[in-house]
């Protein structure tokens, strides 16, 4: 129903991308072997064994033996959360294939609840890409579409996707007025401003330290506005074929080393909004296998 067709795919891809990842993330368990098991028989056996053991051996609501792992998934380890209470840590892998997600990025997250407390970013197939003056602005508009879709505004996201396709076609520069209209529409939405205001505010030093361009300073809403401004300028410059001053997309890169810093401490959904708002055109594989922990 509604946009089921579309979402259906998203759900599916998402599933492939991260869910199995979460299981794999658990201390290198062999995923393949585990899938091969007969599910029904496995489950039956498992339950039987547990009940017998739990009732007999354990007094108190004690949680079985630590080596027990239903479905081949080991118990979560506990850890202190940001309120100083102990909370389970869940290993979830995001990417490399996820809708509205930078292609090839794999983020191994430790989640407490839905808060990312620890993250490790790496790149699958990190080959350098060459954006020309057509693809560059279109990629920017595509990032806008991603951010709008993640913010839950399907209509504006659909419009942005349409403009992206127009911008990719060689021709008359019809994208110019359309992207200008999109900018006006987004600017008018007070709900969107309310929703994105104050989300992951970056200072000058933050942006500099993480190797981000200067326009990444501010909160997510300001970054979205910056993206729209750049899209307007970029499309206009493309239409003018070099006579204008094309904004330089070359520095819209981010090393995976810095990514984890930017996303730790945020909840899953907010982290995705923030990541989309950085308007990354290209990810660079980090120098070090970097692990960052929060707090």
């Amino acid at each position: 129903m509604d946009h089921g067709g579309h979402e259906g795919h998203e759900g599916h891809e998402g599933h492939e991308g991260m869910d199995h990842g979460s299981h794999e993330g658990h201390e290198g368990m062999d995923h393949g072997a585990h899938e091969g098991m007969d599910h029904g028989a496995h489950e039956g056996m498992d339950h039987g064994a547990h009940e017998g053991m739990d009732h007999g051996a354990h007094e108190g609501m004690d949680h079985g033996d630590m080596e027990m792992s239903p479905g081949g998934i080991p118990l979560a380890e506990g850890g202190e959360d940001r309120d100083g209470l102990e909370m389970d840590v869940l290993q979830v892998r995001l990417g490399p294939v996820l809708p509205h997600w930078p292609a090839g990025l794999v983020l191994r997250c430790s989640l407490q609840g839905d808060v990312i407390v620890k993250a490790q970013a790496e790149l699958v197939d990190g080959r350098a890409r060459q954006d020309d003056e057509v693809v560059g602005p279109a990629r920017g508009i595509d990032n806008i579409a991603s951010l709008l879709a993640l913010a839950g505004w399907d209509d504006a996201a659909a419009e942005a996707r349409r403009i992206r396709d127009t911008a990719l076609e060689p021709g008359d520069g019809a994208a110019g007025s359309e992207v200008e209209r999109l900018r006006r529409r987004v600017r008018r939405s007070r709900t969107l401003r309310w929703s994105l205001r104050g989300v992951r505010r970056l200072s000058d030093e933050d942006a500099h330290a993480r190797g981000l361009p200067a326009d990444a300073v501010g909160d997510t809403y300001e970054r979205l506005m910056g993206m729209l401004d750049r899209a307007v300028a970029g499309v206009a410059a493309t239409a003018a074929r070099g006579t204008g001053t094309r904004p330089n997309d070359a520095d819209r890169t981010l090393s995976t080393d810095h990514l984890a810093h930017l996303l730790t401490g945020l909840d899953l959904a907010t982290a995705r909004l923030v990541l989309a708002s950085l308007d990354i055109h290209e990810l660079l594989a980090g120098q070090a296998e970097h692990e960052v922990s929060h707090g």
């Binding site: 498992d46 739990d54 007094e59 079985g64 239903p70 998934i73 118990l75 979560a76 389970d88």
Partner: peptide, 19 residues
């Protein structure tokens, strides 16, 4: 779920104690 610290839905556990 929060206070009985357990993998969500994963670990079958007994609901009784001090039988």
């Amino acid at each position: 779920v929060m206070f009985m610290g357990m993998n969500p839905a994963l670990m079958p556990m007994s609901m009784v104690h001090s039988n």
